[in-house]
Design a protein around this nucleic acid. Structure first.
Lengths: 201, 201
DNA sequence: GCATTTCCGTAGTGAGCGCTATAGAATGCG
DNA sequence: CGCATTCTATAGCGCTCACTACGGAAATGC
């Protein structure tokens, strides 16, 4: 009942996702967001609540779509170590995909923020640390040695690769880094979605 | 001639350094800076120019002081590989030192910024990429294989460790990551400033 | 047609941003 | 001393921030 919404909510959410991904939480002003979403501020606030709520919805959508490659890779491979190798390899491709901004939204979009937005930065940090714990448990259940250290090592690589991508590293360069950081136990040619002929050095 | 300055310029610069280090360029407002520096805005602008000029001076001071450990380690060790191992080990300690904010200022203080401050973010990225090139040349001159990939790999580790430190990782955890990432060719006990008994896992 | 409900564009809220005009205070020089 | 010079503090500049009051437009239910 009443006048229906005049824009596609999911499309607007995706536009907001790209804006937050590229500029981060603080630098993505409401004016920038509404410009990218093709709506006006009142429509944004009616549909999503406020800027923080929109960001939280964006993060959830990111985790369910663009950011799902890591968990998928872990689930596909029989061993945790192999899953991490595959995940880092896919991260190299994902972080440099021209279809969206570079790097990882969860890693880079809120490293610093203004005093009244510290909670969103804390939430992203909690997500990262929770993922670290999940990774550690997966390694431990596989009987791997030093699961906590190896989980944190994988997280370190991933976060470093994200910033490297933002600094201009190419997909091939990141794939070489991933291969050096976590050598795969199986032949790379057997992987899915692999770019052949990784240049090293 | 004239009234002398009523505050210590270097002390104020150090206070600004800590503020930028902790909050990043954007979130470190002039009000926050002047509060930490113990001066008023006109004094800041008379002594340092504007916010960007102050930040550039802070970055230079950081590189000459807190951020000098990496180049120092490279210069101390006879081989590039050994120097990187030592540098990463020292980074683990530096990034978690309670005497200052966590992580690396050059890495974390300007990953995102508002539209009229993109130049300072670009400058920091240029510094990072220049350091990467220096590292690559050092590896190449030492006859190491795949110097570009190994240099980028070291940079990836360093950037990842910086964010890990900001996410709450302890010094021991980061040292374990560093040891896993770049195993030292010499016994760790021979190093300087090393914490004994690194816990792995 | 009509009343009702919801959405949308204009315009503007108070607050904080980087930055500065202005006036007073503190020094060195004669 | 008076004077010139430089620093400091108050106060406020124009601007953008996240956010919203308001009136008109567009849809539904009767």
């Amino acid at each position: 009942m009443g006048r229906p919404r005049g824009f596609d909510r999911e499309a607007a959410l995706d536009a907001a996702l790209m804006t937050f991904w590229e500029h981060g939480f603080d630098a993505a002003s409401v004016a920038r967001l509404t410009g990218a979403m093709g709506i006006t501020p009142p429509s944004l606030y009616a549909a999503f609540g406020d800027k923080k709520a929109l960001f939280r919805e964006v993060v959830a959508r990111y985790q369910a779509t663009w950011g799902a490659y890591f968990g998928d890779a872990l689930a596909e491979e029989p061993t945790a170590s192999g899953g991490i190798a595959l995940a880092l390899h896919r991260a190299a491709a994902a972080f440099t995909d021209d279809a969206h901004p570079r790097g990882c939204l969860v890693i880079s979009s809120a490293v610093h923020c203004t005093p009244d937005a510290t909670d969103v930065a804390d939430e992203l940090r909690d997500i990262r640390n929770a993922n670290l714990l999940l990774l550690e448990e997966r390694l431990r259940s596989d009987g791997e040695p030093a699961p906590a250290t190896r989980a944190r090592y994988a997280g370190t690589i991933l976060q470093g690769m994200s910033q490297q991508a933002r600094d201009g590293a190419t997909r091939a360069e990141l794939e070489a880094v991933a291969a050096l950081a976590w050598p795969p136990p199986v032949a790379p040619a057997l992987r899915t979605g692999t770019a052949s002929g990784v240049a090293a050095g």
